[in-house]
Design a protein around this nucleic acid. Structure first.
Lengths: 502, 502
DNA sequence: GGGAATATTCCC
DNA sequence: GGGAATATTCCC
């Protein structure tokens, strides 16, 4: 075994010796070109040589080994057909088995055994699969958090005391510093020359005057957004964008929501030139249901920019990625054949999905939630106020209690309290069939919006994402807005009072 | 090899013969009690017997085989310590290797090869993977349910009773800009020179049969949102984009929300100058946030229509595909555990992944719910754009089955169609850059809410799915807003009262 | 040719 | 004792 080093498997070393042994060239020898070797005397080879080198005398075993090492039988073809006599000589060749080139032997690798192949492959694949799973798992967590946030974001607007669960007020980041004024409970209304400021002093009701630092009462845009239409319309000719951010999951008791509008706002005369610019408090991205959902769905990717929105392509990529992963996982697993181990089956735990925890309370509504409409100081309409930073700030979401719970606590709709979120959710959980039923009854397929956005009809504000402003050929903006506000009962009352006053 | 049948592996058969051969009892023989056998003469055993039965003469190899078949070495202990001399005799035993009981041999199983070991190990990993997958799967289900619930939970704010589930707006398909048909004959309409027709169908809500036969008359514009139409319509000043972000999950009691607006409120005089064109809200699926979310949950991938957004079906398919993969994967994993037979996989039942059933229609439209603003066709104001959109929208609309849908069903508002959540979401998806822009560049930080509510300052027109803006033959844009209303019945009444008071 | 089980060797 | 690689056998 001249050139065969220790790294060369026994079979190859023996084969090398066997073929190179010139004393047996009548039985087995290199071909003329040294690119292959032939067994010239099969009988003698099996009876005399094989046992000398191996633990058997079976040609088939020898050939089996050759195959295991990748040797291929050389088929001699003459005139397009196999020559009979030539067949008597068994000839094999291998890219790295060449006369005089023992160093090539180390390149010859034994095929992995079936067992190994499977194992290795399986093991490898499992590693990948597990990694994939882990990845997905983490993504899920991210989504869960997002959902939770979404749910939490639904503010509790009930008139009662501060709820510990969700008082998530979103601080109103005002860059121009005006928001502060608005937020101040002490200042029921803010109005600037151009616009109208509407402030919902609800918070002050129960809590009395609270400074900005007031703990319980939180101001923010509220679900119950109220505004004085007339006031809004008033003002200079130039209009500013009105941003009204309502809160989610309102649970307002009208009686508890003294929505106030000042007389000033009601003056019709001024309406003609409405320089209206309303800025509602800013909601953080995190609180935007749509955003939240979006991100939830897209969670896999690290939120990139401020918005954390995924664009369509990203979404697509993400989904494709998932798909690809699944595909691969699938393939890998398929490839991996396992041995039957019944015992393991029982061990497989099925995770339970903890959905709702209804124990959480925190449903106490929070009248303190203030609806704030602020007019931006800037006439020019769009201001740079709302910036990423502001948004970021908004992200501060506190996860209170059960997300889902909070979500639904405030959801109840007018008519159908019976169908509050909690019920729905539970119902769904209990019976998946409920969903379809629910849907089936739906009369309007078109109405789609953000989850948080409940009926839109009633809530024009939400829809107003789109600008109500239009620019005409003359470069003038025309408008349209309107809006209004709500919560209403008090609003009406107030309005009436105002009217009377007038 | 007396009792050894063909089912017994070579080694066991040979061992059985070897031990039972009484002629070699001086080398290897049964112990006195026949419960074990011992190698009495190791040297002789290796040199004479092993080669006779096996392809080697190594005791270690023999022992290796014994171990492979589960034989255990018998350690003789005397007086608490191993007796030296006794060690000379190598003794092994196996539960099923007993003198005179050849039939037990078949119970002796060779340990799985390393390969097998790996398989087992792999099996273990698969167990984990499977468990993980299952967990994820269940979480997904939970999330889907949650999202669905969330969407459903969005309260129905319509003033009337009917469907407790959803107050779906039925978009009025306006192809030529004529939604007039939809208008309730009984309701007052306002039409200005420009051909704009405004109709407040609120009144008809409670009053019974609406011309359209709408079951549950609902006014759209949000429940909480109220505005003075007249004020809104009045004025010719420059308009700025209005961003209104409504709240979510309102839980208003209609009776407590006497928000009212009457026709009176609409001052006719002012109306003349209204380039008002109202179109029933038409939401395009792709643009409807709800739709987007829905599609996210339901799947799809190649975006085909509508602006390159993924349409709902596509999304659905895509997600279904993923689901299917997971299912299959799960099945495979499960199957692997049980049997090594790949074929069995197909037999494994896959857990159900309740996604969305898009088949549901329930589109019974509810005209009553619809607010119809229509511009007369004569105006020719309708641009092809809108028409196209309108059509698309209509197509998209039918996602009733989806829970998500219900969420948004009521969302559509006039103006906001343009920028409904769906649009935003989609937009985001398409171009990630939009996100930053949106968030960072947004002038209005406050406007956060549903994704759909993003600022659309830059693209007001496009966003207007229901075009609030129209270009007239003169190349002028006219606007038109309107709105209002909501919750309704009481609202109107109240308004009237106010008016009267004045 | 090659899958698969068993056998043998090598090594920890 | 047993993991692991290689070897041998058996079979398709």
């Amino acid at each position: 075994m001249e050139g065969a080093s220790s790294v060369v498997p026994g079979f190859l070393a023996k084969l090398w010796a066997l073929v190179n042994d010139s004393t047996t060239d009548d039985v087995i020898a290199w071909s003329r070109n040294g690119q292959s070797f032939g067994i010239l005397d099969e009988q003698k080879f099996c009876k005399e040589l094989l046992p000398k080198y191996f633990k058997h005398n079976n040609l088939s075993s020898f050939i089996r080994q050759l195959n295991m090492y990748g040797f291929r039988k050389v088929v001699t073809v003459e005139s397009g057909m196999i020559v009979p006599e030539k067949n008597t000589t068994i000839e094999f060749q291998h890219m790295f088995f060449k006369q005089g080139e023992a160093h090539l032997l180390e390149n010859i690798k034994r095929k992995v055994s079936s067992g190994r192949t499977e194992d290795l492959k399986g093991s490898d694949d499992l590693q990948k699969a597990l990694a994939e799973v882990q990845e997905i798992k983490e993504q899920q967590i991210g989504k869960d958090n997002k959902l939770a946030s979404l749910k939490r974001s639904l503010p509790d607007v009930s008139g009662s005391p501060p709820s510990k669960l969700s008082r998530q007020c979103v601080p109103i980041p005002v860059e121009n510093g005006e928001a502060v004024d608005v937020l101040d409970p002490g200042s029921p209304t803010v109005k600037d020359p151009n616009g109208i400021v509407i402030q919902d002093v609800t918070a002050s009701m129960d809590d009395g005057p609270s400074g900005l630092g007031a703990p319980a009462p939180t101001l923010f845009l509220s679900p119950t957004l109220s505004a004085d239409p007339s006031s809004l319309l008033e003002g200079s000719s130039h209009l500013s964008p009105v941003h009204i951010i309502p809160s989610f999951g309102l649970d307002l008791d009208v009686t508890d929501c003294p929505l106030q509008i000042t007389e000033d706002s009601l003056e019709p005369e001024d309406i003609d030139n409405l320089p209206l610019e309303l800025h509602a408090s800013q909601a953080s991205d995190s609180e935007d249901p749509a955003v939240v959902i979006d991100s939830i769905l897209n969670d896999s990717h690290v939120s990139t920019q401020g918005g954390g929105f995924l664009n369509r392509n990203e979404m697509q990529d993400f989904l494709n990625c998932i798909e690809a992963n699944l595909e691969e996982l699938h393939s890998m697993l398929s490839a991996n054949k396992l041995t039957p181990d019944p015992e393991l089956l029982s061990e497989i735990p099925t995770a339970e999905f903890p959905i709702l925890n209804m124990n959480e309370t925190g449903a106490s509504s929070n009248l303190a939630d203030t609806l704030v409409f602020t007019k931006s100081a800037e006439e020019g309409g769009m201001t740079s106020e709302f910036e990423a930073d502001g948004n970021k700030d908004m992200q501060l979401v506190q996860y209170m209690g059960n997300p889902l719970l909070s979500l639904f606590e405030d959801l109840p709709s007018f008519e159908d309290r019976s169908q509050d979120a909690g019920d729905l959710l539970l119902a769904d959980l209990e019976d998946e069939k409920d969903v379809p039923t629910y849907l089936e009854d739906s009369d309007d397929p078109l109405c789609l919006v953000a989850p948080s956005l409940s009926d839109d009809y009633e809530n024009p504000l939400e829809s107003f994402e789109s600008p109500l402003l239009l620019e005409d050929p003359n470069g003038e903006y025309k408008l349209f807005p309107l809006l209004l506000l709500s919560p209403v009962a008090n609003f009406i009352e107030e309005a009436t009072e105002i009217e009377n006053t007038i």
